[in-house]
Design a protein around this nucleic acid. Structure first.
Lengths: 187, 187
DNA sequence: ACCTGAACACCGTTCAAGT
DNA sequence: ACCTGAACACCGTTCAAGT
């Protein structure tokens, strides 16, 4: 009835996270605060706390979304090494696809997992399908994530980037490191 | 003369950074703020801005100190692979030796380097002495730092740590990743 | 069930002024 | 040269109260 209120419709976690990403893009991680986020959603700041326990939960949801994109964009692979290579590249892309994405993921506390064992299985699944044990799958994945996250952190660090840019080919060196890592895993 | 004022003596950057580390240990990265830091030094908050341009410079100095400890603790090595292995372990130890050390280093912007070329040479020196080119030295080091920083970030992430602790041996998996990485570098 | 208004206890930083 | 006092423009979060 009231078409004048063109704004909100529904305020759920998904809209909240989407608006948070938009704000992140515009103002960076330091600009991502509750009051501007609320006003972007046509609402007062305390309203956000109905949908989310606190800011750190929001950051956790954002990090989770970034990882989800990376996992989803790994194509089917012929063997576990190729899966890990594609996963590493997908992670780097996912971190770089949002302003301060790497810093966000390095800062964010992991969202409380539902069932621990279930979740581990889900994460390990694509590698277990390619004949790794669950232990190996988790261990190798942890290494690839660490490498990609650390690398993306450096790349996004302004002064560090400018400093290294003159003597380092970021794309080529990332590729060298990733391939060294994945090739070095023994089973 | 005035022994009652047992406090400050001198307020220089070194005392500032030392106090900041002490505060970090007690209250973590979110507790590291300018007013408590100042009062710990027996001074008002604005006084800090005489010694440091802003908080991000302070964080940069802290990160630099952590890296300096890691570099200094790498023993002489017989070849560049062993140097990189020792460096990777030293980094992990250095990050873990302060509460939120990894998050601090992932967040901090690099301090403005003096002379770019000089600094690169200094950093590359131990590896160049072991017969790598400066390009290789910087590239391989960047990969090892990325891996160690990313790994330490995970390890320090409370929920993530608890979640993975049941099915992952952190020490062993770090060693596997580091060795895979360093062994994989070709020259 | 979902949101507002008002408040609490903080932040980082600037700047005139003191010594 | 080094520091204080006071202020500005913010924070995250709680909580009673509204609808």
């Amino acid at each position: 009835m009231d078409m004048a209120r063109s704004q909100p419709a529904l305020l759920d976690r998904d809209r909240l996270v989407a608006a948070a990403f938009a704000l992140l893009e515009e103002d960076g991680l330091e600009g991502l605060s509750m009051r501007p986020l609320a006003s972007r959603l046509g609402v007062q700041a305390p309203a956000l706390y109905w949908h989310v326990a606190d800011k750190s939960e929001l950051l956790g949801l954002m990090a989770k979304a970034i990882y989800a994109v990376a996992y989803a964009s790994v194509p089917a692979a012929a063997d576990w090494r190729n899966w890990l290579l594609a996963f590493g590249r997908a992670l780097r892309t996912a971190f770089a696809s949002h302003r301060d994405g790497a810093r966000l993921c390095a800062t964010a506390r992991a969202p409380r997992a539902l069932s621990i064992a279930d979740h581990a299985q889900t994460i390990a699944a694509p590698l277990v399908a390619l004949h790794l044990t669950e232990q190996q799958a988790l261990s190798f994945q942890a290494s690839v994530i660490s490498f990609a996250l650390g690398w993306a952190s450096f790349e996004a660090n302004g002064p560090m980037h400018d400093y290294l840019d003159e003597m380092l080919d970021f794309d080529a060196s990332f590729e060298i490191g990733l391939q060294a890592l994945v090739r070095g895993f023994a089973i």
